[in-house]
Computed example of a mutant assay.
Amino acid sequence: MSHVAAPRRAVFGWSGFAVGAVALVLTLATLWSGPFAASQSAGVTVGELATEIAQSAARSLAGVPQPAPVAEPRTIDDHLALAVGILSGLAIALGVGAVVRREGARAAAAGIALGGLAVGLQLFAWTVAMLVGAVVISAVIYALRDAFGDLFGGLFDG
């Protein structure tokens, strides 16, 4: 009678794969379908940004202190982004746990890859959004150069 150990089931690896797949699908859903919370149009937001910049500059010139910052309330989009991060981290942790337990390499690698891909995709989208936001803010400041030419110290002079 031989004492061959039964092959270990890849519980951690397949769990990591499943959680990573859910994280990736949730990431894609929030990127393609979102934002889910109600928001103002881009024109209103840019107009409010321009007004806020002008008011801040006027307060600085007058020596008036700036108002205290106000925390924005959390929306469903914030909670979904947090859920993606938690699920992605859990998928990576389960994949690493599968490697440590010497479970199937494919299942472990799939869990780590899907978790990492979900985080990477979310970070990539955030980075692109920040770059676009920086371009919009720069355009608004450039558009205000005539009104506040002295404030910017000849920054936009040719």
Rank of each mutant, 00 (worst) to 15 (best):
G133P: 01
L24E: 01
S56G: 12
I53C: 07
R102K: 14
A91M: 03
R9H: 06
D150C: 11
A23W: 03
D77K: 07
F148W: 09
G120Q: 06
G115Q: 05
A62F: 15
F17T: 02
A38P: 04
A18E: 04
S88R: 00
I76W: 11
H79L: 14
D146Y: 11
Q122F: 07
R106H: 13
G16M: 01
V44C: 05
L87K: 02
L155F: 11
L26M: 15
L61K: 09
L90Y: 02
G47T: 14
A37D: 11
W126K: 05
G158D: 14
A37V: 06
V25H: 03
L49I: 11
L123D: 03
L87D: 00
G95Q: 04
L82G: 08
A110Y: 00
M130N: 10
T75A: 09
G158Q: 05
A21G: 13
G34N: 09
G111L: 05
F152N: 00
L123K: 04
L61G: 07
P65C: 08
S39I: 13
L114V: 08
V135N: 12
G115V: 04
A91F: 03
A93Q: 00
A81C: 06
A6D: 06
V19I: 11
T45H: 05
Y142C: 11
L131H: 11
I112P: 00
I137P: 01
D77I: 01
L28K: 12
R145W: 07
I137E: 07
P35S: 12
A147W: 14
T127D: 09
Q40K: 11
A118Y: 03
E103R: 03
D157L: 14
A143F: 08
R145P: 02
T45V: 08
D77W: 05
A139N: 04
V99T: 03
D150N: 06
I137M: 09
R59C: 05
V22D: 01
A109V: 02
A109S: 13
F124G: 10
T30I: 14
A83H: 05
L155C: 03
I137D: 13
L87M: 06
F156D: 07
F12A: 08
A147I: 10
S88F: 02
